[in-house]
Amino acid sequence: MELRQLRYFVAVAEELNFGRAAARLHIAGPSLSQQIKSLERDLGVRLFERDRRTVTLTAHGETLLPQSRALLEQADALRRTARGFAASEPVRLGYVSWRPPDLAERVSGVAQLLVDTWVMPSHTQAARVSDGSIDLAICWVRATDLAEQELSGRLLGADRLFAVSAGDESPVRARDTVVLVDADTEAWASWNIYAVEFARATGAAVERIDDHGITGPAFFDHVRRLGRPIVSSPKRDATPLPRGFVRRPVVDPIPVWTWALVSRQDELRPAVLAAVDALTRDVKVDFDPATSWLPADDPFHQA
């Protein structure tokens, strides 16, 4: 016997019509009839007398109806209590450089979200979730990372990457761009992995640097030095675009960087699970897989 079957029983008892009850429950009429028969078998009694025109409660059905309503109300009260607990539990979230602008609104009434002020690289944030330092992280991960660290990842957002160069804003082919790879693998491990694979897949050039010029003024110095369009990383940067420089769409293919909401595979806390659902529900990205590029090990490659 399942709570779902009791809800079906109560609906039919109140409507005394299988068609109306099915419409109210948003299920097919034959499915409703089968569930009621299954419930009757489990209980060992008939709940309804029915013919082609009428449906009536049996004496057993009349007796069990108020008890079924009471059980359903207890179940609903339990859910409301659990939601109340979840809404008061702190959920610690770390991020790299991007987070949804409506982050707090999405989890309002679901969990008490505490956004960690330490902005760290993607691989570091994923490791912090794995070791329990934080509960959730918004970061870039590979399917391999998720498996090795026993993590789960849900798609939260995606960035289309652009190239920066002097001149006009016309699109530039991926093979005509440059990607920077920094010697500091502790800070730039995720970007280096992405950039090298992008270059191998598209024919873009790789320029190895050791000055953290993936972002900031040093990045624009590299654009001037090389005189070629350089793909900009997804790392948010407050440095203004220098005069004469433009952001150019990269095409053939379009490089896409995904942001995952990462949690532990064995996570059981209701507040954390509720926050994950609230943050990733109805997430959509508008990139055509026929024209976009993601690393082969991106967990959302087939999404």
Results as ranks from 00 to 15, higher is better:
47 L>D: 00
57 L>D: 09
147 A>H: 00
66 P>W: 07
105 E>F: 08
50 R>Q: 15
171 P>I: 13
89 E>I: 14
166 A>V: 11
142 R>D: 05
175 R>K: 14
111 A>G: 15
94 G>M: 04
124 T>K: 03
93 L>F: 09
51 D>Y: 06
128 R>S: 09
63 T>I: 12
183 A>Y: 13
184 D>C: 12
97 S>M: 03
135 D>H: 12
108 S>P: 04
53 R>I: 07
73 E>K: 15
63 T>Q: 14
73 E>Q: 14
51 D>P: 11
60 H>E: 04
96 V>P: 00
78 L>S: 02
190 S>Y: 06
168 D>T: 08
123 H>V: 01
62 E>Y: 06
63 T>W: 11
141 V>D: 05
117 T>K: 14
93 L>P: 03
108 S>V: 07
120 M>A: 12
111 A>E: 06
193 I>P: 00
178 V>I: 12
86 A>G: 14
185 T>S: 09
151 L>Y: 00
54 T>Y: 08
136 L>K: 08
109 G>M: 08
156 L>R: 03
115 V>P: 00
92 R>W: 03
48 F>P: 09
58 T>V: 04
175 R>T: 01
158 A>N: 10
100 P>G: 07
151 L>I: 01
101 P>W: 08
92 R>G: 02
108 S>T: 03
49 E>P: 04
96 V>T: 06
51 D>Q: 15
141 V>C: 09
118 W>A: 10
131 D>H: 02
179 V>Y: 02
81 T>E: 08
120 M>V: 14
195 A>T: 06
77 A>R: 15
67 Q>C: 07
75 A>E: 09
82 A>H: 02
65 L>H: 07
163 A>D: 12
159 D>M: 15
121 P>M: 09
51 D>W: 06
139 C>A: 15
68 S>F: 10
177 T>Q: 01
121 P>C: 03
117 T>S: 15
178 V>T: 02
195 A>S: 10
193 I>V: 13
176 D>A: 15
132 G>F: 04
80 R>K: 10
78 L>H: 10
154 R>K: 14
116 D>E: 03
115 V>M: 11
112 Q>T: 13
131 D>K: 06
181 V>Q: 08
50 R>F: 14
